[in-house]
Write a protein that binds this DNA or RNA. Structure first.
Length: 481
RNA sequence: GCGGAAGUAGCUCAAUUGGUAGAGCGAUAGCCUUCCAAGCUAUAGGUUGCGGGUUCGACCCUCGUCUUCCGCUCCA
């Protein structure tokens, strides 16, 4: 039974991926060249959906909060940024695999572990040799050292090792068009640092008073060891982050506040609360005082969509140290200077898109009036983020009906995304709109010509009501907010 | 990254022992049609993932490679 359910969920996930491609939501990157692993492109409706989610988040965080402003920092940053943040040293470790146990080790951990079994002088000599090789990036030398010392895998007990490989979390590239003058810089692995380095710029120019937040949406890049599960874990992805700067000592209450606030945002999309849960981090990162994930139940299990972290003053202090610039705030209420503490909310935009698609996708059987069965695939996307809000469908493409439809679109398209369709039977057009997640369809029929009314059909219930033509814009607008 | 499986039209799949690649759906154009897919006609669309090898001849056998899926592994 459990197996069957797992299989069904796997099938559902496959179906969602297929549907996303077939209906123009998400394509694999560079597909005509056989694709690029763990990179995806958004098609017409996928980019619209993604943009709507991004806009909804942006509006919720900035416009709906007096004390949060946005920025748009560059992807390229000064290389020292990543030294200060800990990304350079923390995430570029040589790795080695044991071919028998399939176990992967960080080379330094492996050698250090072995050194612990030696006497003091031998251990020190070994570690000195290792550090020398590490500093020189001599990967072959490191492998030779492991072989010479006959270091074995604790699981398999063998020394059947792969070559030593460098694992780099960050992508690097060259800044400068002439290679000799070029310096190596990184594509940012997170958007947060762009906020931290601009802390004072924003605080001063936007005249912000603590507590206040800075929001940002943007691309980030990470070399994942295993990147899988469609757009859940990509090498290039988009984050929506907000760093909230607070007075030291108030972090607990603000952490609790944002934890609740962010969960409420998710629930405002209208999905079942059962689909969400908090997951507290047991093992905290070196900078964090507390951390919690908001997890969503994807077809492949509960997975992290958003993280809320209490980051202390770690980041600002680090940048203060490396840049030798004061990153402090004078708090007039308590008459004190301090480096603010930070509560971070960080949500993956692509993951949120996948969350919406996963929850929206449904295959339905519909009993017909004559007793036979009908079926449809429908995306129950929350109306406020649906790519197309309204389809306008003339019942036939004759007798002036298309003209009325075109006029209605002209009236509405400034306010929300409309779609015109006159091909095929009306039922078929409804199904096509269901498959794209369009919440409302207006049909122009012959009665429209007589009394200026239209039918408007609801995607989820498939029921219709008749409303005046000149009320359509208002009717839809009210329901997509 | 390792192991296993797979790759034929946009999608789902066919194609005897190796002998010139087909169908349904979808798409497009037109016809029909007065409110919930699967009516009619026509058209487009494939160097069978890619590259070598064996063969008179390869979708089929073989090697490599790329991609995807499943399991393991790593992870801020």
């Amino acid at each position: 039974m459990a197996n069957k359910e797992t299989k069904n969920e796997t099938n559902k996930f496959q179906a969602i991926i297929s549907h996303a491609k077939e209906y123009g939501f998400i394509f694999q990157s560079s597909e005509i060249y056989d694709g690029l692993s763990a990179v995806y492109d958004y098609g017409p409706w996928g980019s619209e959906l993604k943009k709507n989610i991004r806009d909804y988040w942006w509006k919720s965080m900035t416009r709906m909060h007096d004390n949060i402003v946005g920025i748009d920092a560059a992807i390229f940053m000064h290389p020292t940024t990543w030294k200060a943040s800990g990304h350079v040293d923390g995430f570029s470790d040589p790795m080695i695999d044991n071919k028998d146990s399939k176990k992967r080790y960080r080379v330094d951990h492996l050698i250090e572990g072995y050194a612990d079994t030696l006497d003091k002088d031998a251990a020190e000599a070994l570690l000195a040799r290792m550090n020398q090789l590490l500093a020189a990036d001599d990967l072959d030398g490191l492998k030779q050292l492991i072989l010479d010392e006959k270091i074995t895998c604790s699981v398999s007990g063998t020394s059947n090792w792969t070559d030593v490989r460098q694992f780099n979390l960050m992508f690097s590239t060259q800044l400068g068009s002439v290679s000799e003058e070029a310096s190596e810089i990184y594509l940012r692995p997170e958007t947060a640092q762009g906020i931290f380095v601009n802390f004072l710029n924003v605080q001063k120019t936007a005249r912000m008073k603590i507590p206040f937040g800075i929001a940002q949406v943007g691309k980030a890049f990470r070399n994942e060891i295993v990147a899988r599960q469609f757009i859940f874990r990509m090498r290039e992805f988009e984050q929506m982050e907000m760093q909230f700067f607070i007075r030291p000592g108030t972090e607990e209450e603000w952490y609790a506040y944002w934890k609740e606030e962010r969960m409420n945002w998710h629930l405002s999309l209208g999905f079942s609360p059962d689909k969400y849960r908090f997951h507290d981090h047991d093992k905290l990162a070196f900078y964090a005082k507390a951390a919690v994930d908001i997890e969503f139940e994807f077809p492949f299990g509960f997975k992290e969509v958003e993280g809320i972290h209490s980051r202390t003053d770690h980041d600002l202090s680090q940048h203060q140290k490396f840049s030798k610039k004061k990153l402090q705030y004078f708090d007039t209420e308590i008459n004190q200077n301090y480096v603010p503490y930070v509560i971070e909310t960080s949500i993956g935009l692509d993951r949120t898109v996948l969350m919406v698609l996963s929850e929206a996708y449904a295959e339905e059987d519909i009993p017909k009036e004559d007793g036979t069965k009908d079926s449809r695939v429908v995306l129950r996307i929350p109306p406020r983020v649906a790519p197309i809000k309204l389809a306008v469908l003339p019942l036939t493409k004759k007798d002036g009906l298309p003209e009325i439809a075109r006029d209605l679109i002209k009236e509405c398209r400034e306010d929300f995304y409309c779609f015109y369709e006159e091909k095929d039977a009306i039922g078929k057009r409804y199904r096509r709109m269901d498959a794209l997640g369009t919440p409302y369809c207006v049909t122009i029929d012959y009665q429209t010509k007589e009394d200026q009314t239209v039918t408007i059909r609801d995607r989820d219930s498939m029921t219709q009501e008749r409303i005046p033509l000149d009320k359509v814009k208002e009717w839809v607008s009210l329901r997509i907010r």
